[in-house]
Amino acid sequence: MAIRVSGKFRKGKSGLVHRTNKWDIMIYAFMAFFVIVCVYPFWYVLIGSFSDGNDYMRGGVYLWPRLVSLQNYAVALVDSRLWIGFRVTFLRTVIGTVTNVLFTAMVAYAMSRDNLPFRPLIYWFNMFTMFFGGGLIPFYLVLKQLKLINTFWVYIIPGLYSVYNMIICSNYFRSIPGELHESAVMDGASEFRIFRSLYLPLSTPVLATIALWVGVGHWNAFYDSMVYTTSRDLQTLQLYLYKMIKTSEFVSTADMGGLPSNIQQNITATTVRYATIVISTVPILCIYPFLQRFLAKGIMLGSLKG
Protein backbone atom coordinates (compact mmCIF):
# COMPACT_ATOMS: atom_id res chain seq x y z
CA MET A 1 0.00 0.00 0.00
CA ALA A 2 2.77 2.37 0.93
CA ILE A 3 4.35 1.78 -2.44
CA ARG A 4 1.15 2.74 -4.21
CA VAL A 5 0.90 5.98 -2.26
CA SER A 6 4.44 6.96 -3.07
CA GLY A 7 3.72 6.11 -6.69
CA LYS A 8 0.96 8.69 -6.81
CA PHE A 9 2.70 11.34 -4.78
CA ARG A 10 6.33 12.28 -4.79
CA LYS A 11 8.03 14.10 -1.98
CA GLY A 12 8.63 17.75 -2.76
CA LYS A 13 9.84 20.79 -0.89
CA SER A 14 6.63 21.12 1.04
CA GLY A 15 5.67 17.58 1.82
CA LEU A 16 3.49 15.73 -0.66
CA VAL A 17 3.42 17.20 -4.13
CA HIS A 18 1.02 15.99 -6.71
CA ARG A 19 2.21 14.93 -10.11
CA THR A 20 0.27 16.36 -13.05
CA ASN A 21 -1.61 13.66 -14.92
CA LYS A 22 -4.22 13.53 -17.66
CA TRP A 23 -7.02 14.37 -15.23
CA ASP A 24 -5.27 17.56 -14.23
CA ILE A 25 -4.91 18.52 -17.85
CA MET A 26 -8.59 17.92 -18.48
CA ILE A 27 -9.55 19.97 -15.42
CA TYR A 28 -7.24 22.79 -16.47
CA ALA A 29 -8.62 22.73 -19.99
CA PHE A 30 -12.19 22.86 -18.73
CA MET A 31 -11.38 25.68 -16.34
CA ALA A 32 -9.62 27.63 -19.06
CA PHE A 33 -12.67 27.21 -21.28
CA PHE A 34 -15.04 28.38 -18.56
CA VAL A 35 -12.84 31.36 -17.72
CA ILE A 36 -12.93 32.42 -21.37
CA VAL A 37 -16.71 32.02 -21.46
CA CYS A 38 -17.01 34.25 -18.39
CA VAL A 39 -14.57 36.93 -19.47
CA TYR A 40 -14.91 37.09 -23.23
CA PRO A 41 -18.41 38.70 -23.32
CA PHE A 42 -17.02 41.67 -21.39
CA TRP A 43 -13.98 41.87 -23.61
CA TYR A 44 -16.25 41.76 -26.66
CA VAL A 45 -18.19 44.75 -25.39
CA LEU A 46 -15.02 46.58 -24.37
CA ILE A 47 -13.38 46.34 -27.80
CA GLY A 48 -16.71 47.20 -29.41
CA SER A 49 -16.91 50.36 -27.36
CA PHE A 50 -13.49 51.48 -28.60
CA SER A 51 -14.25 50.70 -32.23
CA ASP A 52 -15.31 53.02 -34.98
CA GLY A 53 -19.06 52.47 -35.33
CA ASN A 54 -19.37 52.06 -39.09
CA ASP A 55 -16.28 49.92 -39.33
CA TYR A 56 -17.47 47.72 -36.44
CA MET A 57 -20.78 46.99 -38.14
CA ARG A 58 -18.92 45.39 -41.04
CA GLY A 59 -18.28 42.57 -38.58
CA GLY A 60 -15.21 40.54 -37.77
CA VAL A 61 -14.10 42.50 -34.69
CA TYR A 62 -13.50 39.76 -32.15
CA LEU A 63 -10.17 40.18 -30.41
CA TRP A 64 -8.95 43.73 -30.95
CA PRO A 65 -10.58 46.92 -32.26
CA ARG A 66 -9.80 47.26 -35.95
CA LEU A 67 -10.28 51.00 -36.15
CA VAL A 68 -9.88 52.59 -32.73
CA SER A 69 -12.23 55.46 -31.96
CA LEU A 70 -13.30 57.32 -28.85
CA GLN A 71 -16.35 58.76 -30.56
CA ASN A 72 -18.72 56.31 -28.84
CA TYR A 73 -17.66 57.60 -25.45
CA ALA A 74 -18.04 61.19 -26.61
CA VAL A 75 -21.62 60.49 -27.71
CA ALA A 76 -22.48 58.39 -24.63
CA LEU A 77 -21.14 60.91 -22.15
CA VAL A 78 -23.10 63.80 -23.67
CA ASP A 79 -26.46 62.32 -22.67
CA SER A 80 -27.66 64.13 -19.54
CA ARG A 81 -29.76 61.13 -18.48
CA LEU A 82 -26.60 59.10 -18.02
CA TRP A 83 -25.38 61.68 -15.53
CA ILE A 84 -28.75 61.89 -13.75
CA GLY A 85 -28.70 58.10 -13.53
CA PHE A 86 -25.16 58.13 -12.23
CA ARG A 87 -26.02 60.70 -9.58
CA VAL A 88 -29.16 58.91 -8.38
CA THR A 89 -27.42 55.53 -8.33
CA PHE A 90 -24.34 56.89 -6.60
CA LEU A 91 -26.40 58.63 -3.90
CA ARG A 92 -28.64 55.66 -3.27
CA THR A 93 -25.65 53.34 -3.13
CA VAL A 94 -23.77 55.44 -0.58
CA ILE A 95 -26.72 56.51 1.61
CA GLY A 96 -28.55 53.21 1.25
CA THR A 97 -25.52 51.11 2.12
CA VAL A 98 -24.45 53.13 5.16
CA THR A 99 -27.95 53.30 6.65
CA ASN A 100 -28.71 49.66 5.93
CA VAL A 101 -25.49 48.37 7.47
CA LEU A 102 -25.80 50.50 10.62
CA PHE A 103 -29.47 49.71 11.16
CA THR A 104 -29.11 46.00 10.41
CA ALA A 105 -26.04 45.74 12.65
CA MET A 106 -27.88 47.48 15.48
CA VAL A 107 -30.78 45.03 15.33
CA ALA A 108 -28.32 42.17 14.92
CA TYR A 109 -26.53 43.27 18.08
CA ALA A 110 -29.77 43.19 20.05
CA MET A 111 -30.66 39.80 18.58
CA SER A 112 -27.26 38.40 19.52
CA ARG A 113 -27.69 39.24 23.22
CA ASP A 114 -29.01 36.55 25.52
CA ASN A 115 -30.71 39.11 27.73
CA LEU A 116 -33.03 40.34 24.98
CA PRO A 117 -36.58 39.84 26.25
CA PHE A 118 -38.85 37.66 24.06
CA ARG A 119 -35.90 36.68 21.89
CA PRO A 120 -37.44 33.53 20.36
CA LEU A 121 -40.62 35.41 19.50
CA ILE A 122 -38.75 38.30 17.89
CA TYR A 123 -36.58 35.81 16.04
CA TRP A 124 -39.61 34.13 14.46
CA PHE A 125 -41.18 37.50 13.74
CA ASN A 126 -38.07 38.15 11.65
CA MET A 127 -37.79 34.72 10.07
CA PHE A 128 -41.39 34.57 8.90
CA THR A 129 -40.89 37.55 6.59
CA MET A 130 -38.21 35.65 4.71
CA PHE A 131 -40.70 33.07 3.54
CA PHE A 132 -43.99 34.90 3.22
CA GLY A 133 -44.92 38.32 1.93
CA GLY A 134 -47.90 40.38 0.86
CA GLY A 135 -46.81 40.82 -2.72
CA LEU A 136 -46.35 43.77 -5.03
CA ILE A 137 -49.66 45.65 -4.74
CA PRO A 138 -50.02 45.78 -0.93
CA PHE A 139 -46.36 46.79 -0.66
CA TYR A 140 -46.88 49.49 -3.26
CA LEU A 141 -49.90 50.80 -1.34
CA VAL A 142 -47.90 50.97 1.88
CA LEU A 143 -45.24 53.01 0.12
CA LYS A 144 -47.97 55.23 -1.29
CA GLN A 145 -49.53 55.79 2.13
CA LEU A 146 -46.11 56.71 3.48
CA LYS A 147 -45.76 59.22 0.61
CA LEU A 148 -42.58 57.52 -0.57
CA ILE A 149 -43.68 56.93 -4.18
CA ASN A 150 -41.79 59.19 -6.58
CA THR A 151 -39.30 60.37 -4.00
CA PHE A 152 -35.63 59.54 -3.63
CA TRP A 153 -36.31 57.95 -0.22
CA VAL A 154 -38.18 55.07 -1.78
CA TYR A 155 -34.71 53.70 -2.59
CA ILE A 156 -33.46 54.09 0.97
CA ILE A 157 -36.18 53.57 3.59
CA PRO A 158 -37.74 50.27 2.42
CA GLY A 159 -34.19 48.94 2.07
CA LEU A 160 -33.08 49.97 5.53
CA TYR A 161 -33.14 46.49 6.99
CA SER A 162 -32.44 42.98 5.79
CA VAL A 163 -33.29 39.90 7.86
CA TYR A 164 -30.78 37.69 6.09
CA ASN A 165 -27.89 40.09 6.72
CA MET A 166 -29.08 40.53 10.30
CA ILE A 167 -28.70 36.79 10.91
CA ILE A 168 -25.20 36.71 9.42
CA CYS A 169 -24.17 39.75 11.42
CA SER A 170 -25.73 38.39 14.58
CA ASN A 171 -23.86 35.09 14.21
CA TYR A 172 -20.64 37.03 13.96
CA PHE A 173 -21.44 39.09 17.07
CA ARG A 174 -22.04 35.87 18.95
CA SER A 175 -18.55 34.68 18.08
CA ILE A 176 -17.04 37.71 19.89
CA PRO A 177 -15.99 36.55 23.39
CA GLY A 178 -18.60 37.43 26.01
CA GLU A 179 -15.86 38.48 28.44
CA LEU A 180 -15.33 41.63 26.36
CA HIS A 181 -18.95 42.57 26.79
CA GLU A 182 -18.84 41.86 30.50
CA SER A 183 -15.78 44.00 31.08
CA ALA A 184 -17.45 46.85 29.19
CA VAL A 185 -20.53 46.46 31.40
CA MET A 186 -18.26 46.56 34.48
CA ASP A 187 -16.81 49.82 33.17
CA GLY A 188 -20.30 51.22 33.11
CA ALA A 189 -20.86 51.37 29.35
CA SER A 190 -24.45 51.35 28.14
CA GLU A 191 -25.59 48.69 25.66
CA PHE A 192 -25.72 51.20 22.82
CA ARG A 193 -22.25 52.41 23.70
CA ILE A 194 -20.95 48.83 23.72
CA PHE A 195 -22.50 48.24 20.32
CA ARG A 196 -21.07 51.44 18.84
CA SER A 197 -17.61 51.48 20.40
CA LEU A 198 -16.86 47.81 20.87
CA TYR A 199 -18.86 45.55 18.56
CA LEU A 200 -18.92 47.74 15.44
CA PRO A 201 -15.12 48.20 15.31
CA LEU A 202 -14.55 44.52 16.12
CA SER A 203 -16.79 43.38 13.28
CA THR A 204 -15.33 45.23 10.31
CA PRO A 205 -14.89 42.06 8.19
CA VAL A 206 -18.53 41.06 8.37
CA LEU A 207 -19.74 44.66 8.13
CA ALA A 208 -17.60 45.25 5.07
CA THR A 209 -18.99 42.10 3.53
CA ILE A 210 -22.57 43.14 4.11
CA ALA A 211 -21.83 46.69 2.95
CA LEU A 212 -20.39 45.47 -0.32
CA TRP A 213 -23.26 43.06 -0.75
CA VAL A 214 -25.87 45.77 -0.20
CA GLY A 215 -23.87 48.26 -2.23
CA VAL A 216 -23.74 46.04 -5.30
CA GLY A 217 -27.47 45.45 -4.92
CA HIS A 218 -28.10 49.18 -4.91
CA TRP A 219 -25.81 49.76 -7.85
CA ASN A 220 -27.54 47.09 -9.93
CA ALA A 221 -31.16 47.80 -8.94
CA PHE A 222 -33.65 48.86 -11.54
CA TYR A 223 -36.95 47.22 -10.57
CA ASP A 224 -37.73 49.70 -7.77
CA SER A 225 -36.88 52.61 -10.02
CA MET A 226 -39.19 51.29 -12.70
CA VAL A 227 -42.11 50.49 -10.37
CA TYR A 228 -41.99 53.14 -7.64
CA THR A 229 -40.85 56.21 -9.56
CA THR A 230 -41.95 57.88 -12.74
CA SER A 231 -39.87 61.04 -12.60
CA ARG A 232 -36.94 61.20 -14.99
CA ASP A 233 -34.84 62.83 -12.29
CA LEU A 234 -35.15 59.72 -10.14
CA GLN A 235 -34.27 57.23 -12.84
CA THR A 236 -31.38 55.02 -11.79
CA LEU A 237 -28.42 54.20 -13.99
CA GLN A 238 -29.64 50.65 -14.61
CA LEU A 239 -33.09 51.83 -15.68
CA TYR A 240 -31.46 54.26 -18.09
CA LEU A 241 -29.33 51.41 -19.43
CA TYR A 242 -32.38 49.18 -19.69
CA LYS A 243 -34.25 51.75 -21.76
CA MET A 244 -31.23 52.45 -23.89
CA ILE A 245 -30.52 48.79 -24.67
CA LYS A 246 -34.14 47.85 -25.27
CA THR A 247 -34.97 50.94 -27.29
CA SER A 248 -32.48 50.23 -30.01
CA GLU A 249 -33.35 46.54 -30.08
CA PHE A 250 -37.12 46.75 -30.40
CA VAL A 251 -37.86 50.31 -31.34
CA SER A 252 -41.52 49.76 -32.10
CA THR A 253 -42.55 48.28 -28.76
CA ALA A 254 -40.18 49.32 -26.03
CA ASP A 255 -40.86 52.52 -24.18
CA MET A 256 -39.18 55.34 -26.01
CA GLY A 257 -37.36 58.10 -24.25
CA GLY A 258 -34.06 56.33 -23.85
CA LEU A 259 -32.18 58.21 -26.53
CA PRO A 260 -32.35 61.35 -28.65
CA SER A 261 -33.48 60.59 -32.19
CA ASN A 262 -30.23 61.59 -33.90
CA ILE A 263 -28.42 58.75 -32.10
CA GLN A 264 -31.24 56.29 -32.71
CA GLN A 265 -30.82 56.73 -36.46
CA ASN A 266 -27.07 56.69 -36.23
CA ILE A 267 -25.44 53.47 -37.30
CA THR A 268 -23.16 53.58 -34.28
CA ALA A 269 -26.05 52.91 -31.87
CA THR A 270 -24.58 49.49 -31.07
CA THR A 271 -21.12 50.76 -30.23
CA VAL A 272 -22.47 53.71 -28.27
CA ARG A 273 -24.49 51.24 -26.24
CA TYR A 274 -21.31 49.29 -25.56
CA ALA A 275 -19.59 52.46 -24.43
CA THR A 276 -22.42 53.22 -22.01
CA ILE A 277 -22.30 49.67 -20.66
CA VAL A 278 -18.55 50.01 -20.08
CA ILE A 279 -18.96 53.38 -18.36
CA SER A 280 -21.60 51.97 -16.02
CA THR A 281 -19.44 48.95 -15.21
CA VAL A 282 -16.23 50.82 -14.40
CA PRO A 283 -17.20 51.56 -10.76
CA ILE A 284 -17.92 47.86 -10.13
CA LEU A 285 -14.60 47.00 -11.76
CA CYS A 286 -12.80 49.46 -9.47
CA ILE A 287 -14.11 47.92 -6.27
CA TYR A 288 -14.03 44.36 -7.60
CA PRO A 289 -10.76 43.37 -5.85
CA PHE A 290 -12.36 44.31 -2.52
CA LEU A 291 -15.64 42.69 -3.44
CA GLN A 292 -14.02 39.39 -4.17
CA ARG A 293 -11.88 39.34 -1.06
CA PHE A 294 -14.51 40.46 1.43
CA LEU A 295 -17.52 38.72 -0.02
CA ALA A 296 -15.84 35.35 -0.29
CA LYS A 297 -14.59 35.72 3.27
CA GLY A 298 -17.99 36.87 4.45
CA ILE A 299 -19.78 33.84 3.07
CA MET A 300 -17.48 31.70 5.15
CA LEU A 301 -18.20 33.85 8.19
CA GLY A 302 -21.91 33.44 7.65
CA SER A 303 -21.74 29.72 7.12
CA LEU A 304 -19.63 29.27 10.22
CA LYS A 305 -22.71 28.84 12.33
CA GLY A 306 -25.59 28.88 9.91
Partner: peptide
Protein backbone atom coordinates in the same frame (compact mmCIF):
# COMPACT_ATOMS: atom_id res chain seq x y z
CA UNK B 1 -20.21 38.20 -13.91
CA UNK B 2 -22.14 37.85 -10.64
CA UNK B 3 -21.48 41.48 -9.77
CA UNK B 4 -22.73 42.80 -13.08
CA UNK B 5 -26.40 43.70 -13.24
CA UNK B 6 -28.75 41.64 -15.36
CA UNK B 7 -29.46 44.77 -17.36
CA UNK B 8 -25.85 44.89 -18.50
Amino acid sequence: PHFISWVV
